[in-house]
């Protein structure tokens, strides 16, 4: 899979989750505006990100796409 990247359009850190995600809290959810024009709701791995940060895709696990902050 080619590495997808984009910009954080908005973000939140979830503290109260349904049971299947309870073990993950707190976790960060973002909407990414991808460079190819698509838009995606995804999770963040590692350092927390803010609006306008550049992010790159790291993995897809259990149907969830993960991004991390891009190295600048």
């Amino acid at each position: 899979m080619s590495e997808r990247s984009g910009v954080v359009y908005t973000e939140t850190v979830v503290h109260l989750a349904p049971e299947r995600f309870a073990a993950d809290v707190p976790y960060q959810v973002i909407i990414v505006r991808l460079d190819d024009g698509e838009s995606l709701t995804a999770r963040v791995e590692g350092e927390r990100v803010s609006i306008d940060d550049r992010v790159v895709q790291t993995a897809v696990r259990d149907g969830i796409t993960f991004f991390r902050k891009a190295n600048t």
Binding site: T10, E11, V14, F21, I51, I64
Partner: peptide, 14 residues
């Protein structure tokens, strides 16, 4: 992806 209703409105708020 793990969105809850509070999280959707949280993203709107942000």
């Amino acid at each position: 992806a793990g969105s809850t209703f509070p999280s959707l409105f949280a993203m709107i708020a942000r």
